[in-house]
């Protein structure tokens, strides 16, 4: 079963941004802090510690429901797959995301979201990030139908 990327121990984060740079570099071929599926910031200065905003791998995913052109497709394990060709850059996915984990890249005008590929994980110096599966992935297993 494919895994889900979780920010499991943000208490240990030192705010180095290595994960953001790794995502931009490896997934988006960019030198960037914006083109990253994970966003790190403080809540009230350096001394208050760091938080990660990243896709929680919802299933069903509100962003998939909101996407009018099926550019966002439900990933079986939770989270989404994104099809560049189908995307009309409307931004509905970003508005639908309950945790603001989808960024609209200003230059390319396309949504940036975590695909749970795990490329960032080895670049965290303190193991704040981890690939998890099943119940450890902590997603809602209910059925609305």
């Amino acid at each position: 079963m494919a895994k889900i990327m979780r920010a499991v121990e943000m208490e240990k984060c030192i705010g180095c941004y290595s994960c953001m740079l790794a995502c931009a570099r490896q997934v988006h071929g960019s030198l960037s802090l914006e083109r990253s599926g994970i966003q790190i910031f403080t809540r009230g200065g350096l001394t208050a510690g760091f938080e990660a905003v990243v896709c929680l791998a919802c299933k069903p995913a509100p962003c998939v429901e909101a996407c009018p052109t099926e550019a966002f497709q439900q990933r079986k394990e939770g989270g989404v797959r994104y099809n560049y060709e189908s995307c009309i850059r409307c931004g509905a996915c970003g508005e639908a995301c309950p945790v603001d984990a989808i960024i609209m890249d200003r230059e390319k005008e396309e949504p940036v979201v975590c695909y749970h590929c795990g490329h960032c994980v080895p670049f965290c110096p303190h193991d704040c990030l981890a690939m998890r599966e099943g119940a450890e992935g902590k997603r809602w297993e209910g059925d609305e139908s």
Partner: peptide, 17 residues
């Protein structure tokens, strides 16, 4: 020591608070 933090782009974290 409360915690160590890092400059942006440095995985070491030498700033001791």
């Amino acid at each position: 020591l409360l915690r160590q933090v890092a400059c942006a782009g440095c995985p070491i974290g030498c700033i001791h608070i």
